[in-house]
Design a protein around this nucleic acid. Structure first.
Lengths: 331, 331
DNA sequence: CTGTTAGCGCTTTCAT
DNA sequence: ATGAAAGCGCTAACAG
């Protein structure tokens, strides 16, 4: 089943069939109709690989993420894919599993499959990877890493805004002794959240003591462990901000296990607003980073890059905002 | 950058390069070495589309699921993909969004991209879809639907086992007044869980009254709504089983909101064991359906189908088992 | 508006 | 063991 058969069936040349498929206006309405009929009758689907081979464009996009089982990503994937499919683009997804080694492999897969563009939405991205992609002329969108260039765009996330809002909220609730459980500080994005916290506190005239900063790992376990340390302090914090919701969920469990209650004894603020954040007991006050906005922006940036539009001066920034729920309370 | 350049660089023909890439043993060790060196030096990656075009095999697999943001799926996707990538296969994922209409579109995408096989892991699968795939000679694996055939395999899920274990557990805890919140009963898989519950109760000498069966939708909201009805009853159940964990989470919230406690006032058992099931307060007792097992089995079945091995007599069954946690208690 | 034809990059006979 | 050459299914000049 191929274009030749369709051509025979519709009594035209393969070129005409091709033109009809691709919506060229150089086909008379009557001919086009006949071709479409033949296509339908023969149940013909064009072979995308042949198309790719000749056109040089695969209409496939790569989406590299850290780990699909991390609740941060599924929504991102979904929105990205929805948008892409609407535009007739296929998406191939690759997980790095947070391992830089696997990133190289992911890139190789993308190159082999000749994707028209790649969105690297991992937290551990390395700008050096750009080289391999740019060498192949593959437009690439990063998150929080690197700069715009003719072949790449960077989506910046405004962690500061959300963290300021969280701090503001906590201060208005009379909290002053506030701790922060960070993510892995080798991640630039985690470091930035911590920095935003520290400078926000300083701006409000409070010097953050070392013991008020715990290092987590962006997973439940890290939150559990860090919160235990915080609870053991002579003067434990009255409120805790965390680098992501998973950390907050771990902290929440620890607080409960210690016989204390959120928000009665400790106020708690997460980050990300993953879908389960409002299902905890109490529902988690958190800072939302909209994955749909991120996905949509990334795809839009990628499309511009693919069209060869100059991106260097465009600023892609995703805001973050406080979402008040039940895990914070006045002191 | 193509095979011709490599050939020129290594001073051999393109055929020899091709043979080397494909590990043919008809290449002398010395020549092969030279070719590999050229490949490395030129940073050459074979064009998969050209390969597909000539070989007819794309080394891509389709994975159709209902919705990646449904916590049931990410793990399934991950394991499936991990296995596939290890074997040099790419996976393209499609979400149906639970809409049969979109399923047709997903299938079209798979056919267009010439996948070597498809795993349809949606809860709402329709065996009629097999036609389109079989007509194209695309091996297909279903979940809980259809039969084995030379071009398709069915993975059966043993819902009954898990539900019996749940019931057994509840009975041993002296519960007799047990309600069930089902999923959408147009889904065969939901109906089977309900049936297993009813027949399990009957086998234990208890006739299930109508008011003890509520219909949910496999989402939080359905669980909330159904649990409200149950709580309003003159004689509410002392224990509730649900068709999936999302439903149980909704029910859990409703019970708490009503000023009651789990498991003190009501025991609760979920289904699936999604990753958040052990993060609820209390941790959810549930029936585990291993997504890794499901994914691995599906891929293995698909591979056999692709190799043309006769599958008709093979029985693929995934067990389900009770996981005891904190949401059940003796009456 | 339509047809003819030369490739796209690779694999695979068929020779040698 | 290696090379020459014929396609895989499609698109895009070019010709008419």
């Amino acid at each position: 089943m191929n274009i030749k058969e369709v051509a025979k069936h519709a009594k035209v040349s393969t070129a005409t069939v091709s033109r009809t498929i691709n919506g060229s206006d150089k086909v008379s309405a009557r001919t086009a109709e006949r071709v479409r009929k033949a296509i339908k009758e023969l149940n013909f689907y064009p072979n995308t690989h042949a198309r790719t081979l000749v056109s040089g464009r695969s209409r496939m996009l790569g989406l590299i993420i850290s780990d699909i089982t991390n609740p941060f990503f599924p929504e991102l994937v979904k929105h990205f894919e929805d948008q892409a499919v609407q535009k007739g683009l296929e998406v191939i997804i690759a997980n790095t599993d947070y391992k830089p080694r696997r990133m190289a492999e992911c890139i190789r897969r993308m190159v082999e499959r000749k994707v028209d563009g790649t969105a690297i939405m991992t937290s551990e991205a390395d700008p050096a990877l750009l080289i391999e992609l740019t060498r192949r002329n593959i437009p690439t969108v990063f998150m929080d890493t690197g700069k715009n260039s003719p072949l790449s765009a960077n989506i910046n996330i405004d962690y500061e805004q959300g963290i300021q809002e969280g701090l503001q909220h906590l201060f208005s609730l009379n909290h002053r002794k506030i701790a922060f459980i960070s993510g892995p500080l080798n991640l630039q994005s985690a470091q930035r959240r911590l920095d935003a916290f520290v400078s926000g506190m300083k701006a409000r005239g409070i010097k953050v003591e070392n013991e008020m900063i715990e290092k987590g790992d962006h997973r439940i376990e890290g939150g559990v462990f860090a919160m235990r340390n915080l609870l053991r302090l002579a003067e434990p914090p009255t409120a805790v901000m965390t680098s992501n919701d998973m950390t907050a969920i771990g902290a929440l469990g620890t607080i409960h296990d210690a016989g204390l209650q959120v928000p009665r004894d400790v106020s708690l603020i997460g980050f990300d607003d993953i879908s389960f954040a409002h299902l905890t007991q109490p529902p988690l006050t958190t800072i939302r980073l909209s994955r749909s906005q991120l996905a949509i922006t990334a795809l839009a940036a990628l499309e511009r890059l693919m069209r060869g539009e100059n991106e260097e001066d465009v600023d892609y920034t995703i805001p973050t905002h406080l979402v008040m729920r039940g895990s914070t309370r006045t002191l």
